[in-house]
Simulated assay, not measured.
Amino acid sequence: MGTYLKIDGDPNEIGGTGALLRSMAESFSTEARAVVGDITTIEGEQPWGGDSYGNGFRETYNMVPEGGDKPLRSIIQDNMNNAGERLTKVGDNTVLAMAEYQGTDDDSGRKIRETNV
């Protein structure tokens, strides 16, 4: 059913997996934002040095990739800041999908029972 999570089984269990994923995503988001804050602090100190290796790193780190509109460092930081939100959506969508599945299953069962009367 999924490529990242094994979600075969009872819809309630699958919904629980989605809720767990959401919780883990929120925790991950907090940690990722803390790492981005640490990176920003360290960047201010320019720890890469002034030798050829440091200059090469700084140039690569601050370059705008071909076809891009932001420096590589900004892309990395933006993706880290948004990763938790994206994972939260996966968890939410899993819970919603299972709720919809159960609702459809209940409606179908009711309609089948009504036709057998």
Results as ranks from 00 to 15, higher is better:
residue 1 M to H: 12
residue 2 G to Y: 08
residue 3 T to L: 10
residue 4 Y to E: 15
residue 6 K to S: 14
residue 6 K to N: 15
residue 6 K to V: 14
residue 8 D to V: 14
residue 9 G to Q: 07
residue 9 G to H: 05
residue 10 D to A: 14
residue 11 P to L: 04
residue 11 P to S: 15
residue 11 P to V: 11
residue 11 P to K: 12
residue 13 E to Y: 06
residue 17 T to K: 11
residue 17 T to D: 09
residue 18 G to Y: 02
residue 18 G to Q: 07
residue 19 A to S: 11
residue 19 A to G: 06
residue 19 A to L: 06
residue 20 L to W: 03
residue 20 L to C: 00
residue 20 L to F: 07
residue 21 L to A: 10
residue 21 L to E: 06
residue 22 R to L: 12
residue 22 R to C: 04
residue 25 A to C: 00
residue 26 E to M: 09
residue 26 E to Y: 04
residue 27 S to L: 11
residue 28 F to E: 05
residue 28 F to V: 04
residue 28 F to K: 04
residue 28 F to L: 15
residue 28 F to T: 06
residue 29 S to Q: 13
residue 30 T to H: 10
residue 30 T to N: 12
residue 30 T to D: 14
residue 31 E to H: 10
residue 31 E to V: 10
residue 32 A to C: 07
residue 32 A to K: 04
residue 32 A to Q: 03
residue 32 A to R: 01
residue 33 R to P: 06
residue 34 A to M: 08
residue 34 A to N: 13
residue 35 V to A: 11
residue 35 V to H: 10
residue 37 G to S: 15
residue 38 D to K: 12
residue 38 D to F: 11
residue 41 T to P: 01
residue 41 T to Y: 12
residue 46 Q to M: 01
residue 47 P to V: 02
residue 47 P to Q: 06
residue 47 P to G: 08
residue 47 P to H: 05
residue 48 W to K: 04
residue 50 G to R: 09
residue 51 D to Y: 06
residue 52 S to R: 08
residue 53 Y to T: 07
residue 53 Y to D: 06
residue 53 Y to P: 02
residue 53 Y to R: 02
residue 55 N to Y: 05
residue 55 N to G: 07
residue 56 G to N: 14
residue 58 R to H: 12
residue 58 R to T: 09
residue 59 E to L: 13
residue 59 E to G: 05
residue 61 Y to D: 07
residue 61 Y to A: 01
residue 62 N to E: 10
residue 62 N to C: 02
residue 63 M to K: 12
residue 63 M to Q: 12
residue 66 E to M: 00
residue 66 E to G: 08
residue 66 E to F: 04
residue 66 E to L: 11
residue 66 E to C: 02
residue 68 G to T: 04
residue 68 G to Q: 08
residue 69 D to S: 15
residue 70 K to H: 15
residue 70 K to M: 15
residue 71 P to K: 13
residue 71 P to D: 10
residue 72 L to M: 13
residue 75 I to T: 07
residue 75 I to D: 02
residue 75 I to Q: 07
residue 77 Q to N: 14
residue 77 Q to P: 01
residue 78 D to G: 07
residue 78 D to S: 14
residue 78 D to E: 15
residue 78 D to I: 06
residue 79 N to R: 13
residue 79 N to M: 10
residue 80 M to V: 03
residue 81 N to Q: 12
residue 81 N to M: 12
residue 82 N to T: 14
residue 82 N to L: 10
residue 82 N to F: 05
residue 84 G to I: 05
residue 84 G to F: 00
residue 85 E to P: 00
residue 85 E to F: 02
residue 85 E to G: 12
residue 85 E to N: 09
residue 86 R to P: 00
residue 87 L to C: 07
residue 88 T to R: 05
residue 88 T to L: 08
residue 91 G to C: 01
residue 92 D to Q: 14
residue 92 D to K: 03
residue 93 N to P: 04
residue 93 N to K: 08
residue 95 V to Y: 04
residue 96 L to P: 05
residue 98 M to A: 09
residue 99 A to C: 00
residue 100 E to I: 09
residue 101 Y to M: 03
residue 102 Q to F: 02
residue 103 G to L: 04
residue 105 D to K: 13
residue 105 D to Y: 03
residue 105 D to T: 09
residue 107 D to N: 01
residue 108 S to N: 06
residue 109 G to V: 00
residue 112 I to G: 03
residue 112 I to N: 01
residue 113 R to A: 14
residue 113 R to Q: 09
residue 114 E to P: 02
residue 115 T to W: 03
residue 115 T to L: 02
residue 115 T to C: 00
residue 115 T to S: 09
residue 116 N to K: 12
residue 116 N to G: 00
